[in-house]
Computed example of a mutant assay.
Amino acid sequence: MTVAAKQWTTEFKEINDSNEELNAHGKFFTCSYLLDMETTKVLIQTHAGKIVNVTMDPGPLEHYQFAIRASADTWRKFSQPTPPPMYHGIWAASFQRDMKLEGDLLVLMQNLRCLTTQLELLRVVGVPV
Rank of each mutant, 00 (worst) to 15 (best):
Q45G: 05
S32E: 06
V42I: 15
P60F: 06
A67H: 09
V42W: 02
L35S: 00
I68K: 01
C31M: 10
F28G: 07
C31D: 06
G59T: 08
V54T: 06
Q45W: 03
F66G: 03
T30P: 03
E21D: 14
K27G: 14
D57E: 09
M56Y: 03
L22P: 02
L22C: 05
Q65W: 13
P60R: 06
H63R: 14
A24M: 13
V54L: 09
I68H: 04
T40C: 11
N53E: 15
I68Y: 00
E21H: 07
M56Q: 06
A67S: 15
Y64K: 08
Y64H: 15
V52C: 08
F28Q: 13
Y33D: 00
K50L: 11
F29Y: 06
T40F: 05
N53P: 07
L43D: 01
E21F: 09
T30R: 01
C31W: 01
H25P: 07
P58G: 03
G26N: 00
A48C: 13
G26T: 00
T40G: 04
A67V: 10
C31V: 05
T39P: 03
T39A: 07
V54K: 01
T40W: 07
H63K: 14
V52W: 11
I68S: 03
T40H: 11
H47L: 11
P60K: 08
H47E: 10
H47D: 09
V52N: 08
D36E: 14
Q45F: 05
C31A: 06
P58C: 01
M56V: 11
E62S: 15
F28K: 15
A24T: 13
M56C: 06
K50G: 05
A67K: 15
P60M: 08
K27Q: 07
N53V: 13
A24D: 12
S32P: 10
V54M: 03
V52G: 06
I68D: 03
L61S: 12
V42F: 00
P58Y: 00
P60W: 07
K50S: 09
G59K: 10
P58M: 05
Y33V: 01
M37T: 04
H25D: 11
T55P: 00
G59D: 13
K41F: 04
T40Q: 13
T55E: 09
G49E: 02
G26Y: 02
D57S: 05
A24Y: 08
V52E: 10
I44G: 00
Y33P: 00
H47C: 10
N53M: 14
N53G: 11
E38V: 10
I44S: 01
L22T: 01
G26S: 00
T30V: 05
L22I: 02
P60L: 12
G49S: 08
Q45D: 08
T46W: 00
L35T: 03
Y64C: 09
T55L: 09
L22K: 02
M37R: 02
